[in-house]
Design a protein around this nucleic acid. Structure first.
Lengths: 210, 210
DNA sequence: CTGTTGCAGTAACATTTGTTACACAAGACT
DNA sequence: AGTCTTGTGTAACAAATGTTACTGCAACAG
């Protein structure tokens, strides 16, 4: 497993820390669609993402959801950090966007390493910073953009994360992520197709111009 | 000044750290409406809030704004933390909601203390956590609530922060914070008055039932 | 082939929010 | 007093988004 850690986190962590991660971490492979974190659950270990992408959603009391952001290689889940450190409940839901490989680190180590390794501290702070920025960018989208631009942003974000200009999702699934209705998405996608920005087929959307 | 630090942060920080804060920090008093942080500016020191409240806004390219959250006694600005640590530009705008007292700490000390004091590290992580939660709650409001409920939430939040059931703001000012138009706010406030939840007067709104 | 199922297209309509325009009221200032 | 300025109330309309209902198509199972 050391191979996977090194290739992804070598420039970030000291050798000694890499070695520790290797000793206590466990490699976890999850398929697309796998639910990593349920809202309201307690978390026992934190994930370091090796490959693939994880999508982080917010869910309200009525079960309505909203995409917050994606995590990729080199990222970790900031909510997990604070859940572990403060032993709060999870406020979010995490689903594997693609097949993904993760290294799971037991939470006891987190605090220990925070004291011991400067690189780990920086990694933690940096993760928080990134997530805060992303949360604020999500706020920007919802507050300042109309649904058509949000949809376009969603589609381009998705092509980046999946490294594929073809998106394999139904209109209903997109509607859930953007917290709107299927009809609205179909309507707007049709307009985007007329503008030549996407090409629509059953179950797939091809993003043409980024 | 040591008095103010002790009374507010005594149970949070070690004596030694309190002493250091006392040595390098400077007390700053700002009047209501004072602009503490402009978007796009670099930040040279971080604020610890002693009294009063600070409102944190997001501003988009067109100058449209949106209230993110309030900071109160014992809080610090998470964006400042990450700006300092990563020397990024400010992504936000900060305005004194009430007259406020702050202790300004030079950024050089931040990293030093992060290594040196466990309580400081925890304070930093905790601040990030709180702000991330608040950002996500803001997302909830925008995404899941209609404008009338957002307005009601805004008003009750404001009474809490100001410790006063009477809000001294024009409808236009509220409209800016919620990123909508004055007419919409007037309309919805009128409905809230008809439901007996607020009492309207020129320049003031009295929140009746919390 | 035929029936079933899930997905997408579309119309018609409801609701929410945003915009424009104007009337009027409360203070502030001469 | 009269004259401004600023804040509020309201109507009428426009635009964006949400909802319901129905259509047909493609895939698939039998």
């Amino acid at each position: 497993m050391i191979q996977e850690i090194k290739s992804n986190y070598k420039n970030l962590f000291e050798d000694e820390l890499l070695e520790e991660i290797n000793q206590v971490g466990t490699l976890k492979e999850v398929p697309e669609g796998f639910e990593l974190i349920k809202p309201g659950s307690y978390i026992k270990s934190m994930p370091l993402i090796i490959s693939g992408a994880i999508k982080i959603l917010r869910e309200d009391n009525d079960g309505d959801e909203l995409l917050l952001y994606f995590l990729e290689r080199g990222d970790t889940c900031a909510m997990t950090l604070s859940c572990c450190l403060g032993s709060h409940k999870s406020e979010i839901k995490a689903i594997a966007e693609t097949d993904a490989k993760l290294i799971m680190v037991p939470i006891e180590k987190m605090e220990e390493w925070t004291t011991k390794y400067k690189s780990w501290r920086n990694f933690m702070f940096d993760s928080y910073h990134k997530r805060l920025i992303e949360a604020i960018e999500t706020i920007d989208s919802i507050a300042f953009l109309k649904m058509d631009d949000r949809l376009l942003k969603y589609l381009t974000d998705k092509t980046k994360v999946n490294q594929d200009s073809i998106i394999n999702n139904t209109h209903q699934e997109i509607a859930y992520d953007l917290h709107t209705s299927r009809v609205v998405i179909s309507r707007l996608l049709k307009k985007l197709e007329q503008k030549g920005k996407v090409k629509l087929n059953r179950n797939t959307i091809e993003v043409i111009q980024i």
